[in-house]
Design a protein around this nucleic acid. Structure first.
Lengths: 197, 197
DNA sequence: ACCTCATCCTAGCAACGCTAGACATCCTGT
DNA sequence: ACAGGATGTCTAGCGTTGCTAGGATGAGGT
């Protein structure tokens, strides 16, 4: 009785991942508009209703894709940070890696940050990958800085704004590097006295 | 011949605006998901096809709403900037007004920055209201600063990121003010030497 | 061998954006 | 004043969407 159920559970988990990766591939190839339940079911070679036996709805599927994306983003940022020589360079490296990720996988990034998902942020039930990815930003600041979380939120917001405004053509994509330079030069600056701009 | 056509054109323009404001009110009351062509037609007391005699499609309608939004945003920012005593305070005032606008009219803000629209940004055919609103940010920096456009883009990106991440619950909405304080203190700082964070 | 239960598919629902074609209405020219 | 044509509006419907009910199918257990 147990062995059989375990096998079924394995098969079920396998198919679960099959759906998620299929959705992601389809989105990355043709955009999320092309990810309809019919096309997705076609691609995994099952009928539509099986999707709903795994997920509560389409939003839950993009949430699952987004969750995978957060794991990858976290790993991507971590690699960048650890490859940087010091803390000053770490922030720049992580920011660069972030924008790289956003422009390199636009569909995945959309699932994570633009499309409606069921994911809970900044709460006790926040999935670990989300927190882990965010902590990569926090780690770029000194541990004795009691406002590093705040710093990380602002940096993250700025990067997100740059990524999404650039992706949708609201600011020229060409200037990203220069904008990042400017942002970093201001954030990673310990001066604090306000002056006239 | 002319008078009649003028009257018709007036009526047409009037109905055009009627549709736009109806779409906006519906969106602000129940969110953009509730703005369907049927409900919108119902609200303006016409049938669906008349919408398509005024707009190329639904995207064009939200574009029209967004355009109105940019005009209002520009005026809102301008008032804030002119009420500020000096240039140093102007940036803070404008940023504050921006976040105020974003959180106060979330549906309108979405039409302007999140939903797909037909509007062209950062090009020669950019509608004047967009450029005008953007220039409010630029005006917060000294005219002899040859990178003020870049500065404005970064500030705008950061604000947009904060607004949208906060609105979708990805960062706690409570900390907006503190984040803005931090951002302003860094941007409106003429120091430029990099240091360890 | 039979029963039970889980799994999967066919078929369909309501709602979406959008459009064709019939109907009515108003302006124009004689 | 009246026919003719242009203009404008509506009814009806197409194709697609996310999602679901109910029957068929095949496995496991007794």
């Amino acid at each position: 009785m147990s062995a059989i159920h375990e096998r079924r559970e394995r098969e079920r988990a396998h198919r679960h991942q099959l759906i998620v990766t299929a959705a992601r591939e389809l989105a990355e190839a043709e955009g999320w508009d092309a990810v309809t339940t019919r096309r997705l079911a076609d691609r995994v070679e099952y009928s539509q209703p099986v999707l709903y036996s795994h997920f509560n709805g389409k939003d839950a599927i993009v949430s699952a894709v987004a969750l995978d994306g957060f794991s990858e983003l976290g790993a991507h940022l971590r690699r960048a940070r650890e490859a940087a020589p010091g803390r000053g360079e770490a922030l720049r490296a992580v920011c660069n890696a972030y924008l790289e990720f956003a422009t390199g996988r636009p569909a995945l990034y959309q699932a994570m940050f633009v499309l409606p998902t069921d994911l809970k942020f900044a709460s006790t039930e926040t999935p670990p990958p989300l927190r882990t990815a965010f902590d990569e930003f926090v780690s770029c600041f000194r541990p004795d800085n009691d406002r590093r979380e705040l710093f990380a939120e602002v940096v993250w917001s700025a990067l997100h704004g740059m990524a999404v405004l650039s992706d949708s053509g609201r600011i020229p994509p060409a200037g990203q590097e220069e904008r990042l330079d400017f942002l970093i030069s201001r954030i990673s600056d310990t001066h604090s006295g306000p002056t006239t701009p």
